[in-house]
Write a protein that binds this DNA or RNA. Structure first.
Lengths: 190, 190
DNA sequence: CAGGAATGATTGACCGTTCAACCAAAGGAG
DNA sequence: CTCCTTTGGTTGAACGGTCAATCATTCCTG
């Protein structure tokens, strides 16, 4: 079956990328891991870059965060799920961070990564907007707050990847307090 | 002269790395840019990895932030300087982000990057501790706050790199407000 | 003339991508 | 039911190139 093979290659690529990193991963390695001829990889994916972006898409669909609940409760739920995600999904996060770096100089990967980040950020902004709306506050700071919250989560991911001892729970709790107090209407205190 | 040549290679390496990115930069490219023979690069730097780490060290010494002033004023000064840094030093930041990604799978670069991040974070923590001390508050949240602030700055750097339209000034101002209000003694409001 | 600085050819390996050929299954035609 | 054609998934060798690292050699300075 066709789409079966495609997925097998995606899975193998993720395995090898997680083990060796982007720059030490060759198409040959991926083909071997998948138990398939080298040429077949290019049959399903036009280039290494497009393959890797497909892998990112493939593994990120499994770790989405913060759906269902609305308003501040939804924000708190999203923070909790982020804490959970920080404990698992190490390889997925590592791939994400790596591709951000590669994308700074590779146009194809850069475009893909930019789209990913845009989607991520819009998601955070959406939650921020809901909180502000629930509090009947001016929604305009949502964009700025989302920028900082998204940024902080990315940085926390990096710290956790680089130093597994890093207390990401504490960091996310601190971030939750900071961001929710920043979303209070002016003059109301935090 | 010896140390002159060494520095010439460092500068050339930075130029090429900024233009092409880590994985597309070869020793040969660097040697050509520096106007020296290929072998000379390995004469001064045992491996490509050690060279690149030396480059990071070399260019980061020029963009340090937040010295001199103490306490909350020092924190505000550091935030202002960070805004300024966000406007310039694009290549330095790009190299930093890239090496974080590479370091996730390369032990040599990983060790170097870990040291860099550790130094960076300790610096932020120091400032946080000063602010808390000035406010005669419990210094123990300093570590958590520093983790989030450092994280947010890294994430803001990434957003600015990926999307030059990103309003990093707004983001850093928001972060300043958020973090300083998080550093208030409990029950005092923000 | 000794020794550090500098050269650049060489080594041995690896890369992403392309391509002609192979094969199993499906579809019609007789 | 059989033979022939078409399709498209699959193969693995080959191509043109690049790479980090080594080393015998030459240069230059003190």
């Amino acid at each position: 079956m066709s789409s079966d093979t495609r997925e097998k290659i995606l899975q193998a690529a993720f395995t090898v990328l997680s083990r060796q990193g982007y720059e030490n991963t060759s198409i040959k390695d991926i083909a071997e891991e998948a138990g398939v001829a080298q040429g077949l990889v290019h049959y399903y994916f036009k280039s290494k870059q497009l393959l890797v972006l497909a892998v990112l898409e493939y593994v990120c669909r499994k770790v989405e965060v913060g759906g269902g609940v609305e308003g501040e409760a939804g924000a708190l739920k999203a923070f909790e799920e982020t804490k959970e995600m920080m404990r698992s999904s190490r390889d997925t996060k590592a791939l994400y961070i790596q591709l951000i770096g590669v994308g700074l100089h590779d146009p194809v990967i850069g475009a893909g990564v930019r789209e990913f980040i845009g989607r991520d950020r819009a998601h955070v902004e959406d939650i921020a907007r809901q909180v502000l709306h629930e509090r009947e506050a001016d929604p305009s700071p949502a964009r700025g707050i989302a920028g900082v919250v998204w940024a902080a989560i990315l940085g926390i991911i990096v710290q956790k990847l680089v130093d597994p001892e890093f207390n990401s729970d504490e960091a996310i709790d601190t971030l939750a307090v900071m961001s929710l107090s920043a979303a209070y209407p002016p003059g109301q205190g935090g």
